[in-house]
Amino acid sequence: MPAEDTPAGPGPRGPTQLEKNRALEEWLRWQLGQVQARIRDLEAQEERERQAHAALWKVQPQQSGSPALLHRGDCRLYTGSTYINRGDAVVALTMPEIEPCAVCRPETGLDPE
């Protein structure tokens, strides 16, 4: 048996290796719980942002040889950060120089009121 795990003579005795490792395990479990809680918070924040952007639209400017494109706010094909509301998106779809993105299909459910 290692000297640390043998009973000590009279006087104060420090924690055993087993006690130290149990304390370390408890601390690591606490630390893991903190990280997991942070991950849950960040996932919830991302989901809120995704939902907020899904209710918005964005226009990708015209580039040489291709028309301007209307995208859903959460479309990852165009990462622009200037968003427009539903009314502006409806107007954009009526403009001949703006086409809807073929991937995110921003016109779906965006019928003029």
Results as ranks from 00 to 15, higher is better:
Y78A: 03
D74A: 08
P12K: 07
D88F: 07
T94L: 11
Q63H: 03
R72Y: 00
R50F: 07
K20T: 09
P106W: 04
P2W: 05
A55G: 09
C104Q: 04
A89M: 08
G33E: 12
I84E: 01
W27N: 10
R29D: 13
L93G: 04
C75R: 00
R22M: 14
L56Q: 15
P10K: 12
V91Y: 12
T82Y: 12
P100K: 08
R72N: 03
G65F: 00
R13G: 05
G9K: 06
A44Q: 14
Q36V: 09
L77V: 01
P112W: 03
E26M: 10
E19Y: 01
T94C: 10
A55L: 14
M1L: 10
R13S: 15
L77D: 04
A68C: 03
W57L: 10
G33I: 05
E113L: 14
G33P: 04
A89Y: 03
L69Y: 01
L56I: 07
T82N: 11
L77M: 04
A52S: 09
G87K: 12
V90D: 00
R72P: 00
R76K: 14
C101V: 06
P2H: 11
Q34M: 11
Y78H: 11
M95W: 08
P7R: 11
E107D: 15
R38C: 05
L77H: 06
